[in-house]
Structure formats: C-alpha cells, structure tokens
Design a protein around this nucleic acid. Sequence first.
DNA 1: TCGGACAATATTGTCAACAATATTGTCAGC
DNA 2: GCTGACAATATTGTTGACAATATTGTCCGA
Lengths: 220, 220
Amino acid sequence: MDGMEKRAPTGVEVADWVRNRIRNGRFSPGQRLVEVDIIRQTGASRSKVREALQRLEGEGLVQIEEFRGASVKSTGLEEVAQIYRARIALEGICAADFARHASDEDKRQLCAVQDQLDQCVIDRAPDRFGRLNLEWHRIIVQGSGNSVIAELLKRLNVPIHRLLFESFYDEGRLRTANADHKKMVALLLAGDAEGAEAAMRSHIADGFDTLSKIESEFYG
Amino acid sequence: MDGMEKRAPTGVEVADWVRNRIRNGRFSPGQRLVEVDIIRQTGASRSKVREALQRLEGEGLVQIEEFRGASVKSTGLEEVAQIYRARIALEGICAADFARHASDEDKRQLCAVQDQLDQCVIDRAPDRFGRLNLEWHRIIVQGSGNSVIAELLKRLNVPIHRLLFESFYDEGRLRTANADHKKMVALLLAGDAEGAEAAMRSHIADGFDTLSKIESEFYG
DNA sequence: TCGGACAATATTGTCAACAATATTGTCAGC
DNA sequence: GCTGACAATATTGTTGACAATATTGTCCGA
C-alpha cells in the first residue's frame, strides 16, 4: 500500500485506504474514482477494488452509476446539519451513560486528555486541540459501553472530518469549547447523567453554529 | 425472484432479498448462506450474490469467514439493549423535531394511523397493531425531516424486527403502549418538543423492558 | 469557426474457468 | 465400534478475457 508489501491488500483494506483519502480531502467531492488508478496505487486486484467501492457506497461515502463508476459523494450543508443532529442525540446519550457507569480507567483517560487539551489552549495549538478533541469524544463514547452507537458515530464522523477541525482556528471558539469540556468532565465524574447529557448537547450544537457561520458562504 | 422474470436481479436487489429473509426469520441466526442456493432461488449470477453478501456484511447483518462463506450473524440480548439505547436517542430527537416543524400532511398521516391503532386495541389485533406501530414510528421520523437519522434507524431496526412485534401479544403492554401513543400525539401536535422527546424515550425504554422480560430466558 | 457524425479509446460490467480451501465420505487398522 | 489417514466432493476465492457503455478525438461540411 505505502511501501513495498508482499501480500495483496484485501477488500476491506482498500476500502479503508479510499475512506481515509476521502476523509482528509485527498479525494475531493465529485471526483471520479477510476478502478485502474486505485489498482495502481494500492496493488490490489480489480475484484478487491470493486468490492471496496461497493462497500463505500453502502456507507454512503461514494455513489456508483452504471457504466460511469464510483465518485466521491459530496455532503451539502443540509446533510451536515442532519449529521450534527444525530451526533447530538447519540453523544448526548453516551454522556449520560458515561456518567452512570463508566469505568475508573475510562475516567482516568478522560482526565488525562482534558489536561492535554488545557495545555493546547495555553499553547494556542488549534490543530493539536482538534486531534485531542476527537480523542476526548471517543473516550466518552467508549466509556458509555455502547459499541453499536460507537460504530454509528464512527461512520457519521467520516464526511465531516475536516469540519471537526475547522472551528478551533478561531481563538474564541477554542476557549469556549474547552470551557464546555471542563464543565462536562466535572459533571461526568460527579455522575450527573442529566446534566452531562444537556451539556454535551449544547456543546455539539454550539460547535455546529460556529461552523455554519464559517462555512455558510462556502456552501452558498 | 418470485415468479419468472426476464432481467437478472442486481446486487442491491439480491441484498434486499436476503435482508428480508433474515428480517422475518426465514434465514435464522448462524445459518450459512451458500452462494449456489441463493443463485438458484434468485436467478442472479454469482458475482451479484457475492456482492450482495459483502454489502450485508457491511451492514453488520452477516459475517463472512475466509473460505467458509457468509452466515447470518446473531444478535445477543446485550446488543439488542444497545440498539434500543440508540433508538431512544435518535427517535427522541425525531419526536422533538417533529413537534417543532412537522408539516400538516405528516401530522395528518400520524393522526390517521393513530386512529387505526386505536381500532386495533378494540379489535385485539396485536399483529396488525405491530405493523401499524412500525408505520407510526416511521411517520414521526419522516416528519422530523432528518433523512440521515431515518437511514440509521432503518438499519438499526432490521435485527430487532421480530422483537418489535413480540410484546404486543401481551394485552396489557398493547394497551399501555397505545396510551403512550395517544399522549405523544397530543404533545406532538401541540408542539411540545421537550415533552414529546421525554415521552418517546420512556415509551421505547418501556418497550425494551417488557421485551427483556419476555425474552430473557430465551437469551439465557 | 462551429457542430455533428463517426471512429478510437477508455472504463466499467459480466461471466466462466480455474485455484485454494473446507467439508464430507470411506476404509484400513486396531 | 472407534479413530485417524486419505480420497472425493463441495464451496469459496481469484483471475483474466470479453461485452457493453461511456468518453474522447478527428474530420468534414456548412
């Protein structure tokens, strides 16, 4: 795939490869995904590439038209809004469940990441903050113990991956977001399920609001 | 597929065919899905059947082992509980959004189905009640206007399809469920988003509770 | 120069043959 | 009868060739 590997990649691996490239914008919306190109770049057989593209179509990440092949599906602002609404619902529940029955290990991890986030605010490192922010949310989902929801969120986050970093380049948003985080950690550790859920909801909703202000002219 | 059709079914159609058979129990958990059998029954080519099985694996409905083929994945009580938790989150949000901005047409449809549900209670028709119950929930999701969540719920409901009918054979549960429905319709029409969401949540949670009592010995 | 017809190429869709592995059947030896 | 080795069968995995369609290039006439 990257270097020179012996065994040919499996269909799932090719799907991962393409998905990553879509996520970080290396494949842009509307771009056609020609089978031969992917074969050349991955070393996979055509069957595997086709399998991968069909899987990604199932995830809603690409669309396949007859005799025209696969292309990266673009997600408009309306769909982004719907994804955020789903996140509000799901991560809200996760916060509540985390408050109810997270393990000490999960709580410890959460605090550790929170410390690093605080440091990022001091250092004004929005990029690193973005990465740790993903980790922070992931820990809460994992701590809720619901792997079904975890899987749903993993898929929902793919199309909005870039956007999840965008807003933190605004200093003010970065500070308020981290203030949200600190309050929420307190609620989560205190076992206040209702409070944590409400806090998570407004936190994500605020994230979308600042985002839609930034991106509104882009989407028109 | 059923009768004698001319054109061969596409991969998506074969996937639908298998998914339906899994949903209504015609294919039971653990059962191996042999490619040749599906070819015989659907008239599809092997490529299409393989494509279909891979798609279903992506949906988490079957599992594929190397050189052992596809088999229907079984969902334990723990996973069912997690699915219900996700439903609580997502349908709760849908209820709130329905209350906020559902169209008059959606409201009208909801009332119509509610009337039919009431009739089912009078007639003691649990089977018909189950079908209309699906429709009732679907209308609320549709009325929320969030197609992303609608898609998530459609997938989540597949593995628990049978269970969604089970509890209504208990007369008491059927009555309380319909009482929930009527209260919720009132809240939805009144535009009480918070009330509707809370009602939907406890409605679904109650559904799982009665279910887990019925099925607990089955899952052991 | 423009546009349409036609050819050339590129790309995807389909299928069948073959390889690799698992599953089942058989039988000798005990 | 039971067990293990081996053969026979069944099933899945892979590849390549070919068909179907789309895309691009070319040329000619108005």
